[in-house]
């Protein structure tokens, strides 16, 4: 049987990790371009996943499975990529703020953004503002994404932005925030550049902020 993009796409959407790995191996044996496996196989699938998630046709566990299965395939393709072949569109730092240990939403956002061709550096959870500062200095990202799932930890987002200002790092940096209790109004109030209600919109927001 010949390799087909449709097949790998539906495997990714269904979150069938083993199948994605098997199909990817086949594609590599058939000497398909590694870049096209990503661009014509995985990414269109993840775009569909994003849309379905936004419309309520898919739920968090399914999206996570889809993203994980794509990543499993990606592990095989990555070593074959010639440097510079896949253009890195930007670097995004992600983390859950101080006092908050929730990470499912943040991880999902990370995988969705990564599948859009960005480098994502996940700093973890319960992060002091200083951790964001150190990471911004080290990785010089285009965007910092902060997550909080509790109303009590939302204010830590404001404080993190203020520490970035004290350090002179706020200018030239885009800041996006997310998490269940977060609102557009709150984002404006704390001087964040953007807010996304879900992982699919987070990817769109990244595109928007990078191109702004």
């Amino acid at each position: 049987m010949m390799f087909s993009f449709e097949e790998v796409q539906s495997a990714v959407m269904a979150g069938e990790m083993d199948k994605v790995v098997e199909l990817t191996r086949k594609a590599i044996e058939e000497k398909l371009q590694p870049v096209s496996i990503i661009n014509e196989g995985y990414i269109p699938a993840m775009n569909v996943v994003g849309k379905r998630f936004k419309n309520g046709e898919m739920f968090v566990p399914e999206v996570l499975m889809a993203a994980r299965s794509m990543n499993a395939g990606m592990e095989l393709v990555k070593p074959l990529l010639v440097e510079g072949e896949v253009q890195v569109k930007g670097t995004i730092l992600l983390g859950t703020v101080k006092g908050d240990l929730h990470d499912i939403g943040k991880n999902l956002v990370g995988m969705m953004i990564e599948s859009g061709g960005y480098v994502v550096i996940d700093l973890g959870t319960d992060l002091e503002p200083e951790k964001f500062v150190e990471a911004v200095k080290e990785y010089k990202p285009e965007i910092v994404g902060m997550s909080a799932l509790l109303t009590t930890t939302m204010l830590a987002m404001k404080e993190t932005i203020e520490v970035l200002k004290e350090e002179g790092l706020r200018d030239g940096l885009k800041i996006m925030i997310g998490g269940a209790p977060v609102s557009k109004e709150f984002a404006d109030e704390i001087d964040a550049d953007g807010y996304a209600p879900d992982a699919a919109s987070a990817t769109e927001l990244v595109e928007k902020l990078i191109n702004a």
């Binding site: 109303t151 209790p181 609102s183 109004e185 709150f186 109030e189 209600p197």
Partner: peptide, 16 residues
């Protein structure tokens, strides 16, 4: 007094 609404309607407004 600066408050912000949250996206969770059952929550009170958040005091900033």
């Amino acid at each position: 007094d600066v408050y912000s609404n949250t996206s969770q309607r059952w929550e009170e407004e958040l005091f900033i």
